[in-house]
Design a protein around this nucleic acid. Structure first.
Lengths: 157, 157
DNA sequence: TCCTATTAGTTGACTAATCAACTAATCTGG
DNA sequence: CCAGATTAGTTGATTAGTCAACTAATAGGA
């Protein structure tokens, strides 16, 4: 890993430093490093997802989702409702307590975005976003395809 | 966090998925999710750093560095030598056991890089690298400046 | 229908990472 | 030189996240 050459090192650093920034901002709401992205998705991106959907979208284990969602529920930010059409599923919704802090909470991420892209032109910001999602989709596709192939070869014997 | 809009979400996803890819590759050496980046740095980027330098460069707590380095030491991949010029410091070096697997180990990251940048032109790869490090430096600078300011205002009363 | 396979969620055990408190060594100002 | 401050590293307690084993509900095919 030569210095300033590796893509994954830049991603790792940016993730770690951003996380310390975020958790400082969210800690006053009692929301920790393991919950902010769930809360974010539900409060700013829309609620009513099942835990399975959340796990898939957040790219984390369902065990972690269960515990993170429980913490947000205990803290009064979300509630869960059994899905009437499927007794296994629990759909997750934000409470009024969450809605009240929405704009204030959103600021943390708007500010982070501003810090990350300091000195970027609007075109550079958009370009960065596109390149990042292309990388994200590349590795996602690769890992999923490999998992499918392994599943297949197991079935084939 | 609107879908496919957020920079931090793309970074988070890419980090998580890449990590699962990496740990699958490194696990056969007994190197886990918490050690690969230290080992990478020492084996591919040069050894002889102190734990403090490693913590700074990897952007992790020194407590984690101590434990990760201890694990790599227990597994025989690295060794530590007291710095003769400063009795507090322990410099970290890779062992022969590590050097032997270098090329093979390096492949994991070369392959990851290839997967991440599938469909990228060489110019796009270079551009991505530059944009990522600019973001990394932006947030790093911001967090460090704020830490300094807080330190300052504490001293001033 | 009923038997099996799959899916959603939970729990326990483990590894990863942070924060705070501590020890020992070094540095610095008087 | 020496007393107080800083630095490097360790340890304990806690939170974050994964993996495996489990329960309960659903889906699907004979």
């Amino acid at each position: 890993m030569e210095k300033r050459k590796s893509l994954i090192k830049a991603i790792l650093d940016t993730y770690r430093i951003s996380l310390s920034y975020i958790s400082e901002g969210t800690s006053k709401y009692g929301i920790g490093r393991g919950q902010w992205y769930f809360f974010n998705r539900l409060l700013l991106g829309g609620d009513g997802l099942s835990q399975e959907q959340l796990s898939e979208e957040m790219v984390v284990d369902s065990a972690h989702t269960a515990r993170a969602i429980k913490k947000l529920e205990d803290d009064g930010y979300i509630f869960r409702k059994a899905d009437p059409s499927d007794g296994r599923k629990k759909k997750v919704y934000v409470t009024d307590k969450a809605v009240v802090i929405r704009d204030e909470y959103h600021q943390i991420y708007k500010e982070l975005n501003k810090v990350l892209t300091t000195g970027f032109t609007p075109e550079e910001v958009e370009l960065t976003r596109k390149l990042l999602y292309r990388m994200r989709d590349n590795i996602d596709e690769y890992v999923k395809t490999r998992a499918r192939d392994q599943q297949q070869s197991k079935q084939d014997g």
